[in-house]
Design a binder for these strands. Structure first.
Lengths: 171, 171
DNA sequence: TATGAAACCTGATATCT
DNA sequence: AGATATCAGGTTTCATA
């Protein structure tokens, strides 16, 4: 298996303690270090060290607040499939940069299949979304076509990734 | 405009201070209250109160750690379009419950268009994903068909939602 | 070399004006 | 809402295995 390398070339090797901490933090990043220590059966100092290391290596990217999109005035989630006209590397990158710059774009994936990109957009209203597409897709020469799929209901939205048990360490 | 109602029937009315705090916390939930206070031009006590209120009302759902999926051994993201056989309310709910129970399922949206659901799955490997589909989709009588779209590259992944300026308050 | 215990110091929380 | 006081939690140091 290829060894995983994180930020600043730091090799990433998570043991059982690391994964236990990550799992807890993915559920609730506001847990006191002391509580974490209790839960994983270690000391606050050690937990803190491990967390700092994982931050360093980039495994632990950040901790963020998750808001209720309905309550915050962003009730619309739209999945947009985008097909580009020309797909040379420079133009793909250009498109990605454009998406990265748009605040309403929550995610941008290059995908296999019938089209090139799948974009996830968060919008205030249909009118606002319409204006967005006009500006971002319709006026982009390299966008051959795009199709919008509207989320009518979201029954699950999870940021937490299940963590595989630590890969068998060399004996 | 319909007034927004949060958890426990608490009406949600965010002013400029609230949105400023939410915006900061969506970027970095580990910021000390004191820093928040400085940034938004208020006192720590007030900021803390506002944050507690937003937690109460459900606007602020939780704070979580975001991990690097590559580095953590979950390199595969798959978008699955699912078409059900029968779409009565009970069966839709049953399907959603099943998705909610699956750890690999990051999101489940009911969507408009050619199919019924769009599922976002995080997987360890192609083999593991294949096993997942067999168990979750192929052996579900009510799934008419499903199609997998594989993310080849993720150029943007954002949990932060742009916050509209506070709606015009009554004079 | 990494861990756990304890001291220290910063930030969260509650009370009061 | 803001200032202050109290207390809990994060952070560092040191001793240890």
């Amino acid at each position: 298996m290829s060894r995983r390398i994180g930020k600043k070339g730091i090799p990433v090797a998570l043991d059982a303690l690391d994964t236990a901490l990550l799992d807890l933090l993915q559920r609730d990043a506001s847990l006191p270090v002391r509580t974490l220590a209790d839960q994983v059966g270690s000391s606050p100092a050690t937990c803190q060290r491990r967390i700092a290391q994982m931050r360093e290596s980039g495994v632990l990217q950040k901790q963020v607040a998750i808001v209720d999109r309905q309550l915050v005035g962003r009730p619309l989630t739209v999945f947009v499939s985008v097909e580009l006209d020309k797909q040379n590397a420079a133009l793909l990158t250009q498109f990605e940069k454009r998406m990265a710059a748009e605040e309403d774009v929550m995610a941008c994936y290059e995908v296999s299949g019938e089209f090139d990109f799948l974009i996830i957009v968060s919008a205030e209203s249909m009118a606002q979304y319409h204006a967005f597409t006009r500006e971002v897709f319709s006026s982009n020469n390299n966008v051959r076509n795009f199709k919008s799929m509207f989320a009518m209901n979201c029954s699950k939205f999870e940021t937490r990734v299940p963590l595989p048990p630590p890969a068998g360490e060399p004996a």
